[in-house]
Measured scan of single mutants.
Amino acid sequence: MTEYKLVVVGAGGVGKSALTIQLIQNHFVDEYDPTIEDSYRKQVVIDGETCLLDILDTAGQEEYSAMRDQYMRTGEGFLCVFAINNTKSFEDIHHYREQIKRVKDSEDVPMVLVGNKCDLPSRTVDTKQAQDLARSYGIPFIETSAKTRQGVDDAFYTLVREIRKHKEKMSKDGKKKKKKSKTKCVIM
């Protein structure tokens, strides 16, 4: 069974824990209790493949930012979460993405942009803004509501699919490099 290491990042209060708990335990946590770091595991079937999701729910508070490099190193894919009623959390996505790329030393890291709290009427981040940002990053965008469960499975499952595509691409690139290195030079 394939294991996928997913990391949920975003500013404090955007609903990272609520999304994760909704996926794992099928219930909505409405009281806000700032996370330092929590880890969850769940076995699911995605596109006919049974897999184990190892999900790291991270601290959004700035005082825990020193811990970010460590979990970013171990993560295979990242859910970059903002709240649709919090423009600052949307603007912060850029910083999370840049930090992930720096730590992973790669421009090509599996990510999904997630606009959470889409059940709320007080939207300050337009869907088109988020779609445009995701398009500019070359990553999928999904709106979710941890409260109603809308888009929750889709967000995590899409990230797994992005990781699969990335692994497939990397193995193809690896095979191309191996083929090239088999060419021999004969000096007579």
Rank of each mutant, 00 (worst) to 15 (best):
E3T: 04
V7W: 13
V7L: 11
V8F: 02
A11V: 09
G12Y: 08
V14P: 09
K16Y: 01
K16W: 00
S17F: 00
A18Q: 05
A18L: 00
L19C: 15
I21C: 03
I21Y: 03
Q22H: 05
Q25I: 15
H27N: 11
F28N: 00
V29M: 11
Y32P: 02
P34Q: 02
E37S: 01
S39L: 14
S39K: 03
R41F: 02
Q43C: 05
I46D: 10
E49F: 05
T50W: 04
T50Q: 15
L52R: 05
L53D: 01
L56H: 03
T58D: 01
A59D: 02
G60F: 01
G60W: 01
Q61S: 13
E62Q: 10
E63S: 07
A66K: 03
A66T: 11
M67S: 11
M67I: 05
R68N: 15
R68H: 13
D69Q: 09
M72H: 06
G75D: 04
E76M: 12
G77R: 01
C80E: 01
V81D: 00
F82T: 07
K88P: 15
K88A: 10
E91A: 08
I93G: 04
I93R: 02
H94L: 14
Q99V: 10
K104S: 12
K104T: 15
E107T: 08
D108Q: 05
D108F: 06
V109I: 11
P110M: 02
M111D: 01
M111C: 06
N116E: 15
P121Q: 09
R123A: 10
Q129L: 06
Q131K: 08
A134R: 12
S136E: 08
Y137V: 09
F141G: 03
F141T: 02
T144Q: 03
S145D: 15
K147G: 15
R149F: 11
V152Q: 14
V152Y: 13
D153L: 08
A155N: 02
T158Q: 10
L159K: 02
L159I: 08
V160G: 05
R164Y: 05
K167W: 05
E168S: 04
E168L: 11
E168C: 04
M170V: 12
K172F: 08
G174K: 02
K175F: 14
K175S: 04
K177Q: 12
K177P: 08
K178A: 07
K180S: 05
K182M: 04
C185V: 13
I187P: 13
